[in-house]
Design a protein around this nucleic acid. Structure first.
Lengths: 196, 196
DNA sequence: CTTGTTCTTGACCTGCAGGTCAAGAACAGG
DNA sequence: CCTGTTCTTGACCTGCAGGTCAAGAACAAG
Protein backbone atom coordinates (compact mmCIF):
# COMPACT_ATOMS: atom_id res chain seq x y z
CA UNK A 1 0.00 0.00 0.00
CA UNK A 2 3.10 2.23 0.05
CA UNK A 3 2.57 2.64 -3.67
CA UNK A 4 -1.20 2.83 -3.99
CA UNK A 5 -2.65 1.22 -7.07
CA UNK A 6 -4.70 3.04 -9.61
CA UNK A 7 -3.92 6.23 -11.45
CA UNK A 8 -1.48 8.40 -9.52
CA UNK A 9 -2.36 11.96 -8.55
CA UNK A 10 -1.08 14.56 -10.98
CA UNK A 11 -0.63 17.20 -8.29
CA UNK A 12 1.04 17.34 -4.92
CA UNK A 13 -1.67 17.46 -2.24
CA UNK A 14 0.63 19.21 0.21
CA UNK A 15 1.44 21.95 -2.25
CA UNK A 16 -2.25 22.26 -3.00
CA UNK A 17 -3.09 22.69 0.68
CA UNK A 18 -0.37 25.32 0.98
CA UNK A 19 -1.80 27.17 -2.00
CA UNK A 20 -5.32 26.91 -0.61
CA UNK A 21 -4.02 28.39 2.63
CA UNK A 22 -2.81 31.43 0.74
CA UNK A 23 -6.16 31.87 -0.97
CA UNK A 24 -8.18 31.57 2.24
CA UNK A 25 -5.72 33.83 4.00
CA UNK A 26 -6.04 36.53 1.37
CA UNK A 27 -9.75 36.31 0.64
CA UNK A 28 -11.36 34.74 3.68
CA UNK A 29 -13.40 31.56 3.79
CA UNK A 30 -16.78 32.84 2.72
CA UNK A 31 -15.43 34.95 -0.11
CA UNK A 32 -13.62 31.99 -1.70
CA UNK A 33 -15.55 29.80 -4.14
CA UNK A 34 -14.70 26.20 -5.06
CA UNK A 35 -14.15 27.33 -8.62
CA UNK A 36 -11.56 29.89 -7.54
CA UNK A 37 -9.80 27.25 -5.50
CA UNK A 38 -9.72 24.82 -8.40
CA UNK A 39 -8.29 27.50 -10.67
CA UNK A 40 -5.60 28.49 -8.20
CA UNK A 41 -4.64 24.90 -7.47
CA UNK A 42 -4.48 24.15 -11.20
CA UNK A 43 -6.87 21.22 -10.94
CA UNK A 44 -10.45 20.55 -12.02
CA UNK A 45 -13.21 21.16 -9.53
CA UNK A 46 -14.16 17.48 -9.47
CA UNK A 47 -10.59 16.61 -8.73
CA UNK A 48 -10.66 18.94 -5.77
CA UNK A 49 -13.71 17.23 -4.34
CA UNK A 50 -12.26 13.80 -5.00
CA UNK A 51 -9.03 14.66 -3.24
CA UNK A 52 -10.26 16.70 -0.30
CA UNK A 53 -13.98 16.06 0.06
CA UNK A 54 -15.16 19.64 -0.12
CA UNK A 55 -14.43 23.27 0.47
CA UNK A 56 -14.78 22.97 4.20
CA UNK A 57 -12.47 19.97 4.56
CA UNK A 58 -9.87 21.68 2.41
CA UNK A 59 -10.15 24.72 4.62
CA UNK A 60 -9.56 22.58 7.70
CA UNK A 61 -6.39 21.23 6.13
CA UNK A 62 -5.31 24.72 5.11
CA UNK A 63 -5.91 26.07 8.60
CA UNK A 64 -4.03 23.20 10.18
CA UNK A 65 -1.17 23.80 7.76
CA UNK A 66 -1.13 27.43 8.83
CA UNK A 67 -1.08 26.48 12.49
CA UNK A 68 1.79 24.08 11.85
CA UNK A 69 3.78 26.82 10.16
CA UNK A 70 3.18 29.19 13.04
CA UNK A 71 4.07 26.63 15.68
CA UNK A 72 7.19 25.84 13.72
CA UNK A 73 8.07 29.52 13.83
CA UNK A 74 7.61 29.58 17.58
CA UNK A 75 10.55 27.27 18.11
CA UNK A 76 12.69 29.78 16.28
CA UNK A 77 11.65 32.48 18.70
CA UNK A 78 12.96 30.51 21.62
CA UNK A 79 16.43 30.07 20.19
CA UNK A 80 19.14 32.67 20.18
CA UNK A 81 20.94 34.59 22.85
CA UNK A 82 20.00 38.19 22.07
CA UNK A 83 18.24 40.14 24.84
CA UNK A 84 14.68 38.98 25.31
CA UNK A 85 13.13 42.34 24.54
CA UNK A 86 14.90 42.51 21.22
CA UNK A 87 13.66 39.08 20.32
CA UNK A 88 10.14 39.94 21.36
CA UNK A 89 10.25 42.97 19.11
CA UNK A 90 11.50 40.84 16.26
CA UNK A 91 8.77 38.29 16.88
CA UNK A 92 5.96 40.84 16.96
CA UNK A 93 7.16 42.60 13.86
CA UNK A 94 7.58 39.29 12.06
CA UNK A 95 3.94 38.51 12.72
CA UNK A 96 2.97 41.63 10.83
CA UNK A 97 5.02 40.68 7.81
CA UNK A 98 7.72 38.25 6.93
CA UNK A 99 9.22 41.11 4.92
CA UNK A 100 10.21 43.80 7.44
CA UNK A 101 9.83 46.64 4.96
CA UNK A 102 6.28 46.13 3.72
CA UNK A 103 3.09 45.51 5.63
CA UNK A 104 1.41 42.24 4.78
CA UNK A 105 -2.11 43.50 5.51
CA UNK A 106 -3.57 40.00 5.50
CA UNK A 107 -3.36 39.70 9.24
CA UNK A 108 -3.45 36.17 10.65
CA UNK A 109 -5.43 33.37 9.06
CA UNK A 110 -6.26 31.91 12.45
CA UNK A 111 -7.59 35.18 13.82
CA UNK A 112 -9.44 36.07 10.64
CA UNK A 113 -11.07 32.66 10.57
CA UNK A 114 -11.98 32.82 14.24
CA UNK A 115 -13.69 36.16 13.70
CA UNK A 116 -15.50 34.99 10.60
CA UNK A 117 -16.46 31.47 11.68
CA UNK A 118 -15.64 31.10 15.35
CA UNK A 119 -19.08 31.80 16.69
CA UNK A 120 -20.82 28.99 14.83
CA UNK A 121 -17.94 26.66 14.15
CA UNK A 122 -16.57 25.11 17.29
CA UNK A 123 -13.95 23.08 15.39
CA UNK A 124 -12.29 26.23 14.09
CA UNK A 125 -12.53 27.91 17.48
CA UNK A 126 -10.81 24.94 19.13
CA UNK A 127 -7.98 24.93 16.61
CA UNK A 128 -7.31 28.61 17.04
CA UNK A 129 -7.52 28.37 20.82
CA UNK A 130 -4.83 25.72 20.66
CA UNK A 131 -2.52 28.05 18.76
CA UNK A 132 -3.17 30.88 21.18
CA UNK A 133 -2.33 28.70 24.14
CA UNK A 134 0.94 27.65 22.58
CA UNK A 135 1.88 31.19 21.66
CA UNK A 136 1.11 32.33 25.16
CA UNK A 137 3.25 29.52 26.51
CA UNK A 138 6.20 30.57 24.39
CA UNK A 139 5.75 34.15 25.49
CA UNK A 140 5.72 32.98 29.09
CA UNK A 141 9.01 31.12 28.64
CA UNK A 142 10.63 34.12 27.03
CA UNK A 143 9.35 36.50 29.68
CA UNK A 144 10.55 34.23 32.48
CA UNK A 145 13.99 34.13 30.94
CA UNK A 146 13.96 37.87 30.50
CA UNK A 147 13.08 38.26 34.15
CA UNK A 148 15.98 36.06 35.22
CA UNK A 149 18.31 38.06 33.03
CA UNK A 150 17.00 41.33 34.45
CA UNK A 151 15.78 42.38 31.03
CA UNK A 152 12.11 42.40 32.08
CA UNK A 153 10.58 43.71 35.27
CA UNK A 154 10.18 40.99 37.86
CA UNK A 155 7.28 42.39 39.84
CA UNK A 156 4.60 40.96 37.54
CA UNK A 157 3.82 37.30 36.98
CA UNK A 158 5.37 35.94 33.79
CA UNK A 159 2.15 34.26 32.76
CA UNK A 160 0.22 37.48 33.19
CA UNK A 161 2.70 39.31 30.99
CA UNK A 162 2.43 36.50 28.47
CA UNK A 163 -1.33 36.99 28.31
CA UNK A 164 -0.77 40.67 27.68
CA UNK A 165 1.68 39.92 24.90
CA UNK A 166 -0.71 37.45 23.30
CA UNK A 167 -3.44 40.05 23.40
CA UNK A 168 -1.08 42.67 22.01
CA UNK A 169 -0.13 40.42 19.12
CA UNK A 170 -3.79 39.74 18.39
CA UNK A 171 -4.59 43.43 18.33
CA UNK A 172 -1.64 44.19 16.07
CA UNK A 173 -2.68 41.56 13.57
CA UNK A 174 -6.16 43.03 13.37
CA UNK A 175 -5.02 46.63 13.19
CA UNK A 176 -2.52 45.77 10.48
CA UNK A 177 -5.45 45.12 8.18
CA UNK A 178 -6.67 48.67 8.58
CA UNK A 179 -3.70 50.88 9.21
CA UNK A 180 -2.52 52.87 6.23
CA UNK A 181 1.08 52.90 7.44
CA UNK A 182 3.27 51.18 10.00
CA UNK A 183 3.51 54.16 12.36
CA UNK A 184 0.86 53.23 14.87
CA UNK A 185 1.84 49.58 14.81
CA UNK A 186 5.50 50.19 15.57
CA UNK A 187 4.49 52.69 18.23
CA UNK A 188 2.39 49.98 19.88
CA UNK A 189 5.25 47.51 19.74
CA UNK A 190 7.84 49.91 21.09
CA UNK A 191 5.62 51.24 23.85
CA UNK A 192 4.45 47.81 24.95
CA UNK A 193 8.01 46.58 25.25
CA UNK A 194 8.97 49.71 27.13
CA UNK A 195 6.31 48.92 29.72
CA UNK A 196 7.71 45.46 30.44
CA UNK B 1 -42.52 67.98 2.58
CA UNK B 2 -42.49 67.66 6.38
CA UNK B 3 -45.36 65.25 5.96
CA UNK B 4 -44.46 63.38 2.79
CA UNK B 5 -47.37 62.46 0.62
CA UNK B 6 -48.24 58.94 -0.34
CA UNK B 7 -48.69 55.94 1.86
CA UNK B 8 -46.77 56.29 5.11
CA UNK B 9 -44.19 53.72 6.20
CA UNK B 10 -45.56 51.06 8.51
CA UNK B 11 -42.25 50.61 10.33
CA UNK B 12 -39.74 52.91 11.95
CA UNK B 13 -36.62 53.03 9.78
CA UNK B 14 -34.40 53.88 12.73
CA UNK B 15 -35.63 50.92 14.71
CA UNK B 16 -35.13 48.76 11.65
CA UNK B 17 -31.53 49.92 11.29
CA UNK B 18 -30.93 49.22 14.96
CA UNK B 19 -32.33 45.72 14.54
CA UNK B 20 -30.26 45.14 11.41
CA UNK B 21 -27.20 46.18 13.40
CA UNK B 22 -27.91 43.43 15.91
CA UNK B 23 -28.27 40.85 13.16
CA UNK B 24 -25.06 41.84 11.38
CA UNK B 25 -23.28 42.02 14.71
CA UNK B 26 -24.35 38.52 15.69
CA UNK B 27 -24.03 36.78 12.34
CA UNK B 28 -21.60 38.81 10.27
CA UNK B 29 -22.25 40.44 6.92
CA UNK B 30 -21.71 37.52 4.59
CA UNK B 31 -23.65 35.07 6.73
CA UNK B 32 -26.76 37.26 6.75
CA UNK B 33 -29.25 36.91 3.89
CA UNK B 34 -31.78 39.53 2.79
CA UNK B 35 -34.56 37.11 3.71
CA UNK B 36 -33.27 36.80 7.27
CA UNK B 37 -33.09 40.56 7.53
CA UNK B 38 -36.64 40.99 6.28
CA UNK B 39 -37.88 38.41 8.79
CA UNK B 40 -36.07 40.02 11.69
CA UNK B 41 -37.23 43.52 10.75
CA UNK B 42 -40.80 42.27 10.37
CA UNK B 43 -41.14 43.63 6.85
CA UNK B 44 -41.35 42.10 3.38
CA UNK B 45 -38.18 41.73 1.38
CA UNK B 46 -39.40 44.15 -1.28
CA UNK B 47 -40.11 46.69 1.41
CA UNK B 48 -36.56 46.37 2.62
CA UNK B 49 -35.19 47.10 -0.82
CA UNK B 50 -37.60 49.99 -1.31
CA UNK B 51 -36.60 51.57 1.98
CA UNK B 52 -32.86 50.97 2.06
CA UNK B 53 -31.79 50.10 -1.46
CA UNK B 54 -30.13 46.79 -0.71
CA UNK B 55 -28.30 44.63 1.76
CA UNK B 56 -25.10 46.57 1.44
CA UNK B 57 -26.69 50.01 1.95
CA UNK B 58 -28.56 48.72 4.98
CA UNK B 59 -25.30 47.41 6.33
CA UNK B 60 -23.69 50.81 5.90
CA UNK B 61 -26.49 52.38 7.90
CA UNK B 62 -26.23 49.69 10.55
CA UNK B 63 -22.48 50.15 10.85
CA UNK B 64 -22.83 53.89 11.10
CA UNK B 65 -25.47 53.43 13.77
CA UNK B 66 -23.05 51.22 15.66
CA UNK B 67 -20.28 53.79 15.38
CA UNK B 68 -22.63 56.48 16.65
CA UNK B 69 -23.52 54.39 19.66
CA UNK B 70 -19.89 53.76 20.44
CA UNK B 71 -18.89 57.39 20.05
CA UNK B 72 -21.81 58.32 22.28
CA UNK B 73 -20.43 55.95 24.89
CA UNK B 74 -17.02 57.58 24.67
CA UNK B 75 -18.33 60.81 26.11
CA UNK B 76 -19.47 58.86 29.14
CA UNK B 77 -15.95 57.58 29.68
CA UNK B 78 -14.60 61.08 29.95
CA UNK B 79 -16.99 62.12 32.68
CA UNK B 80 -16.67 61.25 36.33
CA UNK B 81 -14.06 61.85 38.94
CA UNK B 82 -13.02 58.33 39.90
CA UNK B 83 -9.32 57.49 39.47
CA UNK B 84 -8.40 57.14 35.81
CA UNK B 85 -7.24 53.57 36.10
CA UNK B 86 -10.54 52.51 37.60
CA UNK B 87 -12.40 54.17 34.79
CA UNK B 88 -10.15 52.58 32.20
CA UNK B 89 -10.87 49.19 33.72
CA UNK B 90 -14.57 49.92 33.61
CA UNK B 91 -14.34 51.04 30.01
CA UNK B 92 -12.42 47.97 28.85
CA UNK B 93 -14.71 45.59 30.64
CA UNK B 94 -17.74 47.40 29.29
CA UNK B 95 -16.49 46.81 25.75
CA UNK B 96 -16.56 43.08 26.41
CA UNK B 97 -20.14 43.17 27.55
CA UNK B 98 -22.67 45.71 28.66
CA UNK B 99 -23.64 43.15 31.28
CA UNK B 100 -20.62 42.76 33.59
CA UNK B 101 -21.49 39.19 34.56
CA UNK B 102 -21.79 37.50 31.19
CA UNK B 103 -19.49 37.60 28.20
CA UNK B 104 -21.10 38.98 25.09
CA UNK B 105 -18.98 36.92 22.70
CA UNK B 106 -20.02 38.97 19.69
CA UNK B 107 -16.97 41.16 19.87
CA UNK B 108 -17.19 44.50 18.09
CA UNK B 109 -19.19 45.02 14.92
CA UNK B 110 -16.61 47.48 13.61
CA UNK B 111 -13.71 45.11 14.14
CA UNK B 112 -15.58 42.08 12.86
CA UNK B 113 -16.59 43.97 9.75
CA UNK B 114 -13.10 45.29 9.19
CA UNK B 115 -11.70 41.78 9.36
CA UNK B 116 -14.37 40.36 7.08
CA UNK B 117 -14.61 43.16 4.53
CA UNK B 118 -11.82 45.62 5.21
CA UNK B 119 -9.42 44.34 2.62
CA UNK B 120 -11.71 44.85 -0.35
CA UNK B 121 -14.07 47.48 0.95
CA UNK B 122 -12.37 50.80 1.50
CA UNK B 123 -15.59 52.46 2.68
CA UNK B 124 -15.86 50.11 5.64
CA UNK B 125 -12.17 50.43 6.40
CA UNK B 126 -12.45 54.21 6.48
CA UNK B 127 -15.43 54.16 8.81
CA UNK B 128 -13.71 51.84 11.25
CA UNK B 129 -10.48 53.81 11.11
CA UNK B 130 -12.46 56.87 12.11
CA UNK B 131 -13.80 55.11 15.19
CA UNK B 132 -10.35 53.90 16.13
CA UNK B 133 -8.90 57.38 15.90
CA UNK B 134 -11.60 58.76 18.16
CA UNK B 135 -11.20 55.98 20.70
CA UNK B 136 -7.48 56.54 20.74
CA UNK B 137 -8.07 60.24 21.26
CA UNK B 138 -10.31 59.61 24.25
CA UNK B 139 -7.75 57.24 25.69
CA UNK B 140 -5.09 59.91 25.24
CA UNK B 141 -7.18 62.46 27.15
CA UNK B 142 -7.78 60.04 29.97
CA UNK B 143 -4.14 59.01 30.16
CA UNK B 144 -2.98 62.62 30.19
CA UNK B 145 -5.31 63.38 33.04
CA UNK B 146 -4.15 60.28 34.86
CA UNK B 147 -0.58 61.42 34.45
CA UNK B 148 -1.37 64.83 35.92
CA UNK B 149 -3.08 63.17 38.84
CA UNK B 150 -0.16 60.85 39.38
CA UNK B 151 -2.34 57.83 38.70
CA UNK B 152 -0.41 56.84 35.59
CA UNK B 153 3.33 56.79 35.04
CA UNK B 154 4.56 59.99 33.46
CA UNK B 155 7.67 58.71 31.73
CA UNK B 156 5.84 57.57 28.61
CA UNK B 157 4.08 59.74 26.07
CA UNK B 158 0.30 59.84 26.60
CA UNK B 159 -0.41 59.27 22.93
CA UNK B 160 1.87 56.24 22.89
CA UNK B 161 0.03 54.77 25.84
CA UNK B 162 -3.26 55.55 24.11
CA UNK B 163 -2.15 53.53 21.10
CA UNK B 164 -1.32 50.65 23.38
CA UNK B 165 -4.73 50.86 25.00
CA UNK B 166 -6.47 50.95 21.64
CA UNK B 167 -4.54 47.89 20.57
CA UNK B 168 -5.32 46.18 23.86
CA UNK B 169 -9.01 46.85 23.45
CA UNK B 170 -8.91 45.48 19.92
CA UNK B 171 -7.21 42.32 21.05
CA UNK B 172 -9.67 41.83 23.88
CA UNK B 173 -12.64 42.15 21.57
CA UNK B 174 -11.23 39.49 19.28
CA UNK B 175 -10.21 37.13 22.06
CA UNK B 176 -13.62 37.47 23.68
CA UNK B 177 -15.08 35.62 20.73
CA UNK B 178 -12.90 32.60 21.44
CA UNK B 179 -12.28 32.47 25.16
CA UNK B 180 -14.37 29.94 27.03
CA UNK B 181 -14.31 32.02 30.22
CA UNK B 182 -13.41 35.52 31.36
CA UNK B 183 -10.20 34.50 33.15
CA UNK B 184 -7.69 35.38 30.50
CA UNK B 185 -9.51 38.54 29.53
CA UNK B 186 -9.62 39.96 33.04
CA UNK B 187 -6.00 38.97 33.51
CA UNK B 188 -5.10 40.97 30.43
CA UNK B 189 -7.05 43.99 31.66
CA UNK B 190 -5.61 43.89 35.16
CA UNK B 191 -2.06 43.32 34.01
CA UNK B 192 -2.18 46.00 31.35
CA UNK B 193 -3.43 48.56 33.81
CA UNK B 194 -0.78 47.51 36.29
CA UNK B 195 1.87 48.30 33.70
CA UNK B 196 0.69 51.88 33.23
C1' DC C 1 -63.89 60.51 -5.27
C1' DT C 2 -60.26 61.21 -8.32
C1' DT C 3 -55.49 61.69 -8.96
C1' DG C 4 -50.75 61.36 -7.93
C1' DT C 5 -47.55 59.62 -4.78
C1' DT C 6 -45.35 56.42 -1.77
C1' DC C 7 -45.44 52.04 0.75
C1' DT C 8 -46.17 46.65 0.97
C1' DT C 9 -45.97 42.20 -0.49
C1' DG C 10 -44.86 37.95 -2.46
C1' DA C 11 -44.15 35.90 -6.81
C1' DC C 12 -40.60 35.86 -9.91
C1' DC C 13 -35.91 36.17 -12.11
C1' DT C 14 -30.78 35.54 -12.73
C1' DG C 15 -26.53 33.91 -11.44
C1' DC C 16 -23.57 31.46 -8.90
C1' DA C 17 -22.09 28.57 -4.79
C1' DG C 18 -21.39 24.08 -3.63
C1' DG C 19 -21.45 19.64 -5.02
C1' DT C 20 -22.32 15.14 -7.97
C1' DC C 21 -21.36 12.08 -11.59
C1' DA C 22 -20.41 9.56 -15.86
C1' DA C 23 -16.90 8.88 -19.11
C1' DG C 24 -12.52 8.11 -19.79
C1' DA C 25 -7.32 8.11 -18.66
C1' DA C 26 -3.29 6.24 -16.10
C1' DC C 27 -1.42 3.26 -13.41
C1' DA C 28 -0.14 -2.11 -10.87
C1' DG C 29 -0.93 -6.76 -10.79
C1' DG C 30 -1.69 -10.99 -12.96
C1' DC D 1 -3.36 -7.09 -22.64
C1' DC D 2 -7.03 -7.67 -19.45
C1' DT D 3 -8.78 -6.28 -14.83
C1' DG D 4 -9.46 -3.64 -10.92
C1' DT D 5 -8.41 0.61 -8.90
C1' DT D 6 -7.77 5.43 -8.52
C1' DC D 7 -7.41 10.01 -10.68
C1' DT D 8 -9.28 13.86 -14.01
C1' DT D 9 -12.46 16.62 -16.09
C1' DG D 10 -16.27 19.28 -17.34
C1' DA D 11 -21.10 18.92 -17.91
C1' DC D 12 -24.76 18.93 -14.99
C1' DC D 13 -27.81 19.55 -10.83
C1' DT D 14 -30.07 21.87 -6.73
C1' DG D 15 -30.81 25.53 -3.78
C1' DC D 16 -30.45 29.88 -2.39
C1' DA D 17 -28.50 34.74 -2.41
C1' DG D 18 -29.56 39.02 -4.01
C1' DG D 19 -32.60 41.68 -6.33
C1' DT D 20 -36.78 43.21 -9.44
C1' DC D 21 -41.47 44.15 -10.27
C1' DA D 22 -46.46 44.30 -10.89
C1' DA D 23 -50.56 44.66 -8.32
C1' DG D 24 -52.69 46.75 -4.94
C1' DA D 25 -53.17 49.51 -0.41
C1' DA D 26 -52.86 53.86 2.21
C1' DC D 27 -52.32 58.30 2.38
C1' DA D 28 -52.71 64.15 0.83
C1' DA D 29 -54.22 67.37 -2.31
C1' DG D 30 -57.62 69.22 -5.10
Amino acid sequence: MLVPMGRPKEFDPERAVAEAMEVFWTQGYGATSPQQLADRLRIGKGSLYNAFGGKRQLFDLALRHYLDLRVEGLAHWLEGTAPVKDRLREALLFLLSSDPDTLDRRGCLAINSAVELGRLDEAVATQVRGLFDRVEGVFASLVARGQREGDIRGDVDAKALASVLLNTATGLLVLSRLEPGPDRLTRVVDTTLALL
